[in-house]
Each structure stands twice: as C-alpha cells, then as structure tokens.
C-alpha cells in the first residue's frame, strides 16, 4: 500500500518584524518550547531535536487508551534561507510511522510579517487504516495549526 499524503496550508500576519519571526523559527531550542503538547524534548544539535508529544485524538475514540497517545518524533530544520524555513518531523504515533514536512515562509510587511505555511504529511499504512475509525485528516490539520499557533503565541509574548 502506498503511503497517503495529506496537505494543508494557511496564512496570517503577526505584529513582529520578519527578523524576529525568523530568529525564533530558525532557533530550534526556542521553537520547540513553543509547540503545544510537548511533554519533553532534548535538543540534539543546532538543527535537530527529539520531542515527545501527547496527541489528543478526541473523546469520540471508543478506546480510552487511544484518545491521548504519546508520540516520539525527531524534528529537524532541513533548510533555512532568508525568508523560508523547512522543518521535517519524523515520528511514530500509535505504532505507525508519520512524517510531516512543514514549510514556513515569512514576508516582510513593514514592521509586521505575513506567515504562509504549507504542511505535507505522510502517514504509514496503519495510521491510514485507523482513518476508517478516526478522522486522521482533521487531526493532522489540527496538529499543524496548533504548531503554527504555538509559534505565534510565543512571538506575541
């Protein structure tokens, strides 16, 4: 079975200059602290961290143990240019592989910044199977949005 690809994107503005946004999202040790649901993490080097998340699949999942599952992942900054950062997240959730490529582009809007993001998620076969019982699509979408929102909250602090 081929792995399934899911894509999401979004855009918004923050009241911070582009440099400040870029500083945060290219500094993995700071950025990781902004991601919600991180239980613990370990920065491996400048561009790589190991992170444990607790992911909420929602109370409608009929098995209690499967509603909030712990996911171990590595997050890596694969490229960082002037106005664009790419993150790669490789992990395992509920015994299945998941990999997400997140691209964030920051446009200077004279004192504020526009952030365009684009996420592509690849789900392992078992997570795809789980899609028959749980809305995986909205789940991955929510995780992507939560992550971006986490960055924004950090920036507005």
């Amino acid at each position: 079975m081929m792995s399934k690809e899911l894509r999401y994107s979004g855009s918004f503005t923050v009241n911070k200059p582009r440099e400040e946004v870029m500083d945060l999202i290219t500094d993995l040790s700071r950025a990781v602290e902004c991601i919600p649901n991180v239980v613990n993490h370990e920065v491996l080097d400048r561009n790589k961290a190991r992170v444990r998340f607790r992911v909420d699949l929602g109370d409608e999942v009929p098995i209690a143990e499967l509603r909030r599952i712990t996911t171990d992942a590595t997050i890596e900054i694969v490229s960082a240019a002037n106005d664009e950062v790419r993150y790669k997240v490789d992990g395992r959730a509920a015994g299945s592989a998941i990999s997400i490529l997140l691209m964030i582009r920051v446009l200077d809007k004279g004192g504020s910044s526009q952030i365009d993001w684009d996420a592509t998620a690849n789900l392992g076969k078992l997570l795809q199977m789980m899609g028959r019982f749980i809305n995986i699509d909205s789940l991955v979408k929510k995780i992507s949005e939560d992550t971006i929102n986490g960055f924004i909250n950090c920036l507005s602090r």
Binding site: R54, I69, T70, L126
Partner: peptide, 23 residues
Amino acid sequence: KPSDGDILVPYGSTSIMGTTAAI
C-alpha cells in the same frame, strides 16, 4: 484524562505499568 502510560498496578509481589496503545 485517560491516556497511554498512566497506571501502575501492584500485582502480587510485582508492579505492572501500562499501557501503550498501538494499531
């Protein structure tokens, strides 16, 4: 709220920690 890895049971002379959740 219920999640994986949240219960330790004393079972006889042992301790049992559980559980994970995987498909």
